[in-house]
Design a protein around this nucleic acid. Sequence first.
DNA 1: TATTGTTATACTCTATAACTATA
DNA 2: TATAGTTATAGAGTATAACAATA
Lengths: 152, 152
Amino acid sequence: MSGEDNNDIDFGVLDELIGYRLRKTQLVFFNRFGDACADVGISPGLFGVLVIVKRNPGLTQTAVAMALGNDRSAMVAAVDKLEQMNLVERRPSKSDRRSYALYLTEEGQTRYQSIEERVLEYERELQSVLKPGEQELLLDMLMRLTESGIQS
Amino acid sequence: MSGEDNNDIDFGVLDELIGYRLRKTQLVFFNRFGDACADVGISPGLFGVLVIVKRNPGLTQTAVAMALGNDRSAMVAAVDKLEQMNLVERRPSKSDRRSYALYLTEEGQTRYQSIEERVLEYERELQSVLKPGEQELLLDMLMRLTESGIQS
DNA sequence: TATTGTTATACTCTATAACTATA
DNA sequence: TATAGTTATAGAGTATAACAATA
């Protein structure tokens, strides 16, 4: 997908921009995620919802959206899809009739394992270019860069 | 823009996934880029074209697209916009009447400087959470992760 | 035949605003 | 009044397929 004979191209300041490199690298991870999970219909965004619901059963849609940092309107289609795949179910909240509590279905619990395995497998594959300790350092740097830019 | 009181949320495997962290961090950089350059109408993608054309004057649209790793069909709207802003111009290629050679206009040359300054300024701001030497290390790791995943 | 720029198209991701039913 | 889920909508970003002009 990337360039071919870019050896003779001068990338100027792009070579020093973390923002530019992040975009390219994120695209590689995104594409690999697709290769790994396309047949099960799980995108990176849907996987995020899946993880949050699995680890925090009973959350409302809005709470999941806040956890993932996106708008609650985006949750509707996401949960719709996961419900159609019979991975997640909406249960009416007992305390608040406006909201749902989200849970993995029984099928969701078992299928989650194989999905997570796939994700971890392609991550390990890509991370194989990192030396010991570099993964933790990379995650730490990315976390710091994210926290500093909460603003807005 | 991100979550608020996510202290009590269990992110499970997401905390170890470089792909997930990349996406979040890239979004922060993307948003900051917008804050820094919205008034001049330059997006991260347009800035990439600008840099390549400045450092490699005379390239065709397809060559710029390959350098940046995206499809040549996307270049049409990009160059259209940059041409309307009077930053870039299409000159007919002497050797090949199918293609254009891309150059910064005179106005593009001068305005490029202030745009690059803005970009470098917000990058420095975000990078202030990195310790000495970490920027180079981060860029190196990102580069390695990208090169390993060229495939597809 | 292959390639350049182009158009049409479509799909994903994301955000905003407004609606409804509840609180 | 404020909030949860929803809908409609719109804007990027990106990719594919096909076409005309040219190689």
